[in-house]
């Protein structure tokens, strides 16, 4: 019983201490920006492909599914486009996409930091008098948080293109109806909601997986475990905070 309650609290405490060390002024701004740019490429730009691919197909599939399932004579024809847009904007392009990124980016961060830990690269930084948490983790967190709005925009656009492709090439419905539906009752606030959610999720993904990677003890097996744990933990936290945020932002 004791371990059931105390262990999570101890882990949370360690996480907070690590974040405290991470959010300090970098020793050298020049080095920070260099790392920041690197991480923007590695975590953000390198994720564009998978985001486009998945969003395109999900956009298409949602359109087809909705068309097939709610088609009836007294349903306005624009409803398909309208529903597709709401699903993409409200959930898919922020929450679901971040779940996917938790798998890709989270495991990447955890295994990179874990390997640096077990091969003593982090110790080497500490010996030099570098705040290793700040040097390694802060650029990752800030880079992912600043890239995520772009990834969300890419996801939304790819989803819409996917939806249009079902009209142009599949003949599932009329492109004008889809276009009308996509624009029907558009609320800009929903886009901002996506961004806000995405930025929070980006923080969760990067900080949680950095925590698991940074605190690895032992050898390569622990690195593998840390990478898995970080994906599971950040996915759970994303789902949970999605619930909270949806309540708050609605």
């Amino acid at each position: 019983m004791n371990t059931l309650i105390l262990k999570p609290i101890a882990t949370l405490g360690k996480y907070l201490i690590l974040m405290w060390r991470t959010f300090a002024r970098p020793d050298r701004m020049r080095m920070f920006f260099k790392q920041y740019l690197n991480e923007m490429v590695q975590l953000g730009v390198n994720s564009i492909g998978i985001v486009l691919l998945i969003s395109f197909f999900i956009g298409a599939v949602i359109t087809i599914q909705i068309k097939l399932n709610i088609e009836s004579p007294w349903m306005p024809r624009f409803v398909v486009g309208y529903t597709t847009r709401e699903i993409m904007l409200l959930e898919f392009s922020s929450s679901i996409m971040c779940l996917i990124l938790a798998g890709k980016v989270g495991s990447n961060i955890a295994s990179e930091l874990g390997t640096m830990r077990v091969t003593q690269q982090i110790d080497a930084l500490e010996i030099m008098g570098v705040n290793s948490a700040n040097y390694l983790i802060l650029p990752k967190i800030t880079a992912l948080m600043s890239m995520i709005p772009f990834l969300i925009v890419f996801s939304i656009v790819a989803g819409i293109i996917g939806a249009f492709c079902t009209c142009w090439f599949g003949g599932v419905l009329n492109a004008e109806d889809l276009e009308y539906g996509l624009q029907y009752c558009f609320q800009e606030w929903f886009v901002w909601c996506s961004f806000i959610k995405g930025i929070v999720f980006a923080f969760i993904i990067s900080s949680v997986s950095a925590f698991f990677g940074y605190t690895v003890e032992g050898g390569s097996i622990s690195v593998g475990k840390a990478s898995t744990d970080s994906v599971v933990m950040s996915s759970v936290l994303i789902l949970f905070s999605d619930l909270v945020l949806t309540r708050l932002l609605a």
């Binding site: 640096m116 091969t119 003593q120 690269q121 110790d123 080497a124 010996i127």
Partner: peptide, 9 residues
């Protein structure tokens, strides 16, 4: 310091 595993970045 030189580490047992060299610890190069």
């Amino acid at each position: 310091m030189i580490f047992q595993s060299a610890a190069l970045f």
